[in-house]
Design a protein around this nucleic acid. Structure first.
Lengths: 201, 201
DNA sequence: ACCTGAACACCGTTCAAGT
DNA sequence: ACCTGAACACCGTTCAAGT
């Protein structure tokens, strides 16, 4: 017993996160026990505490990785097209990610932490939000960045809600249908509210 | 030991649910253990299994009660006013409930059940959804009930998403601000999409 | 019939002891 | 320095035994 150092701390962290990812993806949060992770990677559960503070800290790290994946899936969607098309592409990318990894995605929001988030975490969330703001920017002038930020949050939150309810089976309709309606209403409403009846977008 | 029958099964159920409600409201799901509930009501944890199948079943019953409260808080909001005002009132009532009971409300969605829902559960959810559909009905003709149902789900899901993100502190804006924007865009967009530029609502 | 208390099979977490 | 194995203080759940 004791002292193996088959892996550096960084390797060990990666090993743990990879095992945790697989467990959550396949069997959900309930199956994610420290003993199970340790067994899967050939260590003892005590070892995990050399490299993570506790189970919450481990989940936070996993959520960070999931947010990175989500950002990758969602950024750079349909750069060229008009705003409405880009919004639709963005929404579809988000919904697609949720459908592909419902358990990992749920873990981000379902897990109620006891401790506050560390500094490195909020930017990962903000970066995902930022994609919506960029996509929306052409609709708003430089002077209306506040409105743009608000609209971006409104649309993200709405999209998010549809994904939550769809993944709970509480929607009785595809989230894509609903989000298309949302975007259609938003764009049409925006043209009215932004004055006159422009067609540029 | 054994045989007390201080309470009928119905009373016992109510006692358990009341204790559970208080624990979740004050300390969240993590504090809701069978032993803790039993202690609070002066029984032993084994007794809970006479009246609930397991912890999940108990939580489901608690969620049912919360949904009833939510329905009560949300139904009958501003019956007289025009649709936009009623939508705002409905949204405020929902947000108000979530802010007053974030932990009980979260339990409805955060808890990932292993077993499928029993028959009595979905109608409780549907009833809450129904309020939105009723509120929206004046905007749609009898022939467009499908559109109405879709718009209702779209708005519920959006409202829901805002509450989720607000209660996680991930919004950096009040949910009320966002939902007002959502409703404004929806109404303005609807008038355009429903043809012409009616003002009736 | 109803409840208890102990038991079982788990948890997360800590840490002395080993290498 | 790093890891193990046992221990501690919990869980949910079951059930023989008592009244």
């Amino acid at each position: 017993m004791g002292r193996r150092a088959d892996h550096t701390p960084e390797q060990l962290r990666a090993l743990v996160l990879d095992a945790a990812r697989k467990i959550v993806a396949a069997e959900g949060e309930r199956a994610l026990t420290t003993r199970r992770i340790a067994q899967d990677i050939g260590y003892t559960s005590g070892t995990l505490y050399n490299v993570f503070k506790d189970r919450d800290d481990l989940i936070l790290a996993l959520n960070g990785a999931t947010l990175d994946e989500l950002f990758a899936a969602v950024s750079g969607t349909a750069r060229g097209a008009d705003v409405e098309k880009r919004l639709r592409a963005l929404a579809r990318a988000y919904i697609g990610f949720v459908r592909a990894q419902p358990q990992l995605w749920s873990l981000i929001f379902e897990h109620s932490r006891a401790t506050p988030e560390p500094d490195w975490y909020p930017p990962k969330v903000a970066r995902v939000f930022g994609v919506m703001e960029e996509t929306l920017a052409p609709l708003y002038g430089e002077a209306a960045r506040r409105d743009c930020a608000q609209a971006a949050r409104m649309l993200w939150a709405s999209l998010h809600g549809m994904c939550v309810l769809e993944s709970k089976g509480a929607l009785a309709m595809p989230a894509t249908t609903l989000v298309d309606g949302l975007i259609r209403h938003f764009i049409a409403g925006h043209e009215v509210l932004a004055g006159g009846g422009r067609r540029k977008a």
